[in-house]
């Protein structure tokens, strides 16, 4: 099935490591990451580009890796969930916040949520609750109802985590 007509050589940097592989023209980036490189942390939750489980950072920007072809990543630099605390290392502040706030249940949305949240905090280190919710709109979680994920992002931003809820309460 490796037809040279439809196969291309791509070179990508993922989590600081360089990979050069032949990929099929039609191969999705997310399948390349998972099936070819066996980086299993990035997940797939849909086939319409609206769940965000596959979110990775491409040159620092959050992208849904199911909405990109592997060939489009040629020459680019990617970060996946595996980069957040490399093997053996402790959880990063953001990951720790997810643990503290119980923002993880099944863990399927989690890698995408973390990457989206990381990008947000890099852009806006002190986002308000509405910004957090709007930013996470493209990342579906079926387990947590989002409340604790919002709290986790607030904790990672050094905010009072009850602020969001109280803000609602004042509405």
């Amino acid at each position: 099935m490796n037809d040279p007509e439809t196969t291309h050589l791509v070179e990508v940097q993922i989590n600081g490591e360089r990979y050069e592989r032949a990929v099929q023209a039609r191969e999705l980036l997310v399948h390349f990451i998972r099936d070819t490189l066996a980086l299993k942390g990035t997940h797939i939750g849909c086939d319409t580009g609206n769940c965000g489980a596959c979110t990775v950072l491409v040159d620092g920007q959050p992208m849904k890796s199911c909405m990109m072809l592997a060939v489009q990543a040629d020459g680019l630099s990617l970060e996946t969930v595996e980069s957040l605390s490399p093997a053996g290392e402790e959880l990063s502040d953001l990951q720790k916040a997810f643990n503290d706030q119980h923002a993880v249940q099944c863990g399927w949305c989690t890698p995408g949520m973390l990457m989206q949240a990381k990008a947000l905090l890099e852009r806006d280190p002190d986002p308000d609750v509405e910004t957090i919710r709007r930013t996470l709109k493209g990342n579906i979680c079926r387990c947590t109802g989002y409340v604790n994920i919002v709290r986790a992002v607030q904790q990672a931003a050094g905010q009072d985590v009850s602020a969001g809820i109280q803000q609602e309460a004042r509405a």
């Binding site: 980086l39 299993k40 942390g41 990035t42 997940h43 996946t80 969930v81 595996e82 957040l84 605390s85 959880l91 990951q95 997810f98 643990n99 993880v104 099944c106 863990g107 399927w108 989690t110 890698p111 973390l114």
Partner: peptide
């Protein structure tokens, strides 16, 4: 949580 947050769950 640790394994799930580090992309080390096995599904």
């Amino acid at each position: 949580d640790k394994r799930l947050l580090q992309g080390q769950g096995t599904f």
